[in-house]
Nucleic acid binder design. Structure first.
Lengths: 233, 233
DNA sequence: CATTGTGAACGGATTCACAGCC
DNA sequence: GGCTGTGAATCCGTTCACAATG
């Protein structure tokens, strides 16, 4: 059927979907790869190439039909029917993510909220009650859940993963700041704020350092060229 | 001074730092690249190569001195002194991130929380009061802030960015699900849950589709080989 | 002799240049 | 003519194989 699709392409598909959703809201019927490029920041060639992994959805000389392309991408990602998802860990982050997905994300259906803390179990997020872990197998089974988000502390994350995999979960979006092991065939995706924040800090701090170096070295003629290369464009 | 460091390397540095922090907590004095590989999931060669972008920190035949390497990475990222950071947008996500960074992240110093909503302004997160946007220029200036996290709705994100850049912010970690434009020289990093979640859903849904195809085609002998290639290892 | 440090080979993803089509 | 679709060329990051060294 379909060849192996590069990971990077899969990451971009949801971006295309979001832009197409926005275009539909603005009643746009046709869109050019060039316009998609402006909205996404990816190059037009890349977008066209990405799409041809799955077929030829455009019309040469004209562009892409917005709602047709959107429907195709929904099919490709598998968002035609709402995907049932559970969230484990109802701390501040977990409840924020749950709220967001319950109210703003039309493509997923949050069908279970779980926590270990007896203080938290029984409280409600929007209209859903937080359940104990003991209820997980039942919910996962009843609702045919394949995808879980985990927002528990790093220390409990490994155990939760084992539990989830045992219950038949197939894909895990991990927000705990720790590296997790999953068996072959289980998909794991990490989201780690601290890492993103720290890499940003790297850039601002090296910029600072470079400015200082320029100043320090400004007496030494022979370094002029190197310094030039160091200044941000 | 230093050549251009690949983006991917910068993303991995904070992971090394975290592992080294954990090793110090366990009183480990020496670590091998092989062990770092186990803890991070990156290959040992890659780790060694990453580090040589900045110098030679190990001892051949022995390994790396944990606290020396940690100190070097702190220097490289620029986390020797706490970095002042502000957070704009005190919805559920914004306040969760603020709490997390105030209590668990020893490398940053949250020096300002901001929101537009008069209902939210004046409330407290841990011990800090949420301030109106009008206070931003003062705080950014007084505290020499270069890094901001924004967790406002997609609709207001663009305006906030303009404001921040005007105030002298240099790096932005954006959690709003929208593509932002920043002037040359300003660093922007996006964190987008929905996109991560949807790419995960792609994998589970294509797996489902493939299983169905296998079943449908199981009568057609000639497709056997193709189908084999489709099954996950 | 075990482990780091590194040039060379490899592979995957992006960009280029243009062929194909409306 | 204008835009999509695509093989070829390029770029970038990872892996490999081994040289360097405590």
């Amino acid at each position: 059927m379909q060849q192996k699709v590069p990971k990077m392409v899969v990451k971009r598909l949801p971006v295309y979907l979001r832009v197409l959703d926005n275009l539909i809201r603005r009643d746009r019927e046709i869109v050019l790869s060039r316009e998609l490029s402006e909205e996404t920041g990816f190059t037009a060639e890349q977008i066209r190439k990405d799409l041809t992994n799955f077929g030829a959805f455009g019309t040469r000389g004209t562009g892409y039909d917005v709602s047709y392309l959107r429907q195709q991408i929904l099919n490709i990602i598998g968002l035609n029917t709402k995907t049932p998802v559970i969230v484990v860990g109802m701390g501040h982050l977990g409840s924020a993510l749950s709220r967001y997905n319950m109210t703003k994300n039309p493509y997923v259906d949050i069908v279970g909220l779980f926590d270990l803390d007896p203080q938290v179990i029984g409280t409600k997020i929007i209209h859903q009650e937080v359940l104990p872990l003991s209820e997980m197998p039942r919910v996962i089974n009843d609702k045919k859940v394949k995808v879980a988000m985990i927002t528990v502390p790093a220390t409990s994350a490994k155990d939760i993963v084992k539990e989830l995999v045992g219950c038949g979960i197939n894909a895990i979006l991990n927000f705990a700041p720790t590296k997790l092991e999953v068996p072959e065939g289980i998909y794991l995706q990490n989201v780690d704020f601290s890492i993103e924040l720290q890499s940003l800090i790297y850039y601002v701090s090296t910029e600072e350092k470079q400015k200082q170096n320029i100043w320090k070295r400004s007496f030494g003629e022979k370094y002029a060229k190197q310094i030039d290369r160091m200044i941000m464009p």
